[in-house]
Design a protein around this nucleic acid. Structure first.
Lengths: 110, 110
DNA sequence: TCTATATACATAAGATTCAAATGCATATAG
DNA sequence: CTATATGCATTTGAATCTTATGTATATAGA
């Protein structure tokens, strides 16, 4: 019925922004955080998240460190210094796109 | 330097909304309108537009009529009655996504 | 005259990106 | 002993976009 999905193109910005506000997070934590913050209205699937994390890592915006917590392996991600810059850039670019499209729809901006 | 592209997922909503405001439009006109309204900052390519128009038509939200103007063929699109409802729905859904994501990007740091 | 640009439609190839499904493994609650 | 939750990850396939190309007419400029 509803399209409870991440708006395409927003995912990288969201990941980077969450890691700006919280020093380090692991994958599952990110999915749960998004769920919680949006009252379950945006569903961030793992099939989307993990490839995005790997891409951000390969681009040098994230670095990962593995830890064992309660006998389970966790992979924590944190921003590199380039990642911090990129987080701000991507958030701004996204908001600018929203502004443009909202204007195009001639609806009052948020 | 900027990614002058339509935000993925917004295209259908934009087309439907433009046709809500203007009774009928043809493809090229839509590309030029978007260009004009966004000061050339969103580039709506024909490779994206025409498939989207055809899909909206096949879904029953648009209907087309062909006219010859100055020896050139023009295909005018207009909303069906279902299309009018869908235009409102898609615009609202899009804005709601924007709101959700904007909220995600504006979490207060601890 | 010839060529670039604009108008106007459209498809094809390739890339990206995502959802859905699945897999592995551990832990706990019923 | 089984269902659910946690936690990592990949595969498959669909959708959607960019880039490039194709067809055709008209006009402005070199």
């Amino acid at each position: 019925m509803s399209d409870k999905h991440i708006l395409k193109g927003s995912l990288q910005a969201i990941i980077l922004q969450l890691l700006t506000e919280q020093d380090r997070m692991y994958g599952y934590e990110i999915t749960q955080k998004v769920k919680q913050l949006t009252a379950n209205e945006l569903h961030l699937t793992e099939g989307a998240l993990y490839p995005a994390l790997h891409k951000l890592e390969s681009e040098g915006f994230l670095e990962a460190e593995v830890e064992v917590v309660e006998n389970r392996v966790r992979k924590y991600y944190k921003l590199t210094s380039e990642g911090k810059t990129e987080a701000a850039n991507k958030a701004l670019a996204l908001l600018e796109s929203f502004r443009q499209i909202t204007q195009l729809l001639q609806i009052k901006p948020l």
